[in-house]
Amino acid sequence: MPGDLHEALAAGRLIPYIGPGVLALDPACPLPATPEALVSRLVARAAVPHKIRGNLTAAAQFIENFKHRKTVNTLMRDAFAVDASPNALHGWLAASGFPLIVHAWYDDLVRAALAARGGDWGLVQAVSQAEHYGTWVHYFRPDGVRVDRASWATLVYEPFGALHPACNFLVSDSDFVEVLTEIDIQTPIPREVQALRQDRGVLFLGCRFTTQLERAFARQIMKRSHGPHWAVLPDTKTRNESRFLSEQSITPVVVDLAAFTHALADLTPAPEALVAS
Rank of each mutant, 00 (worst) to 15 (best):
G144Y: 02
M76D: 04
L114P: 05
V72C: 07
R117S: 13
P86C: 08
P99R: 02
R146N: 05
R149I: 05
L109H: 07
G134F: 13
W92D: 03
G119T: 07
W92R: 11
T135I: 15
Y133N: 11
V124E: 00
G91P: 06
G118M: 10
N87H: 08
D83C: 08
A84R: 02
Y133F: 13
G144P: 01
V102I: 14
N87M: 02
D78W: 02
S96L: 03
F80H: 03
V127F: 12
N73E: 10
A116H: 04
W105D: 08
A115K: 08
G119K: 12
V147E: 01
H138S: 11
S85A: 15
Y106V: 06
V124L: 07
Q129G: 15
Q129K: 10
D120G: 13
G119C: 14
V82M: 04
W105H: 13
P142N: 04
R146K: 13
Y106S: 06
D143V: 11
A113E: 06
N73G: 11
A84N: 00
H132E: 13
V127M: 10
A95T: 11
H132C: 15
W136F: 15
M76V: 09
L93Y: 01
W92E: 04
N73M: 07
Q125M: 15
S85C: 08
Q125P: 02
G97N: 01
F98N: 02
N73P: 06
T135S: 14
S85K: 10
R141L: 11
A81Q: 15
L109P: 10
V137N: 14
D143H: 11
A81G: 09
A84D: 03
A104Q: 06
H132I: 12
Q129S: 15
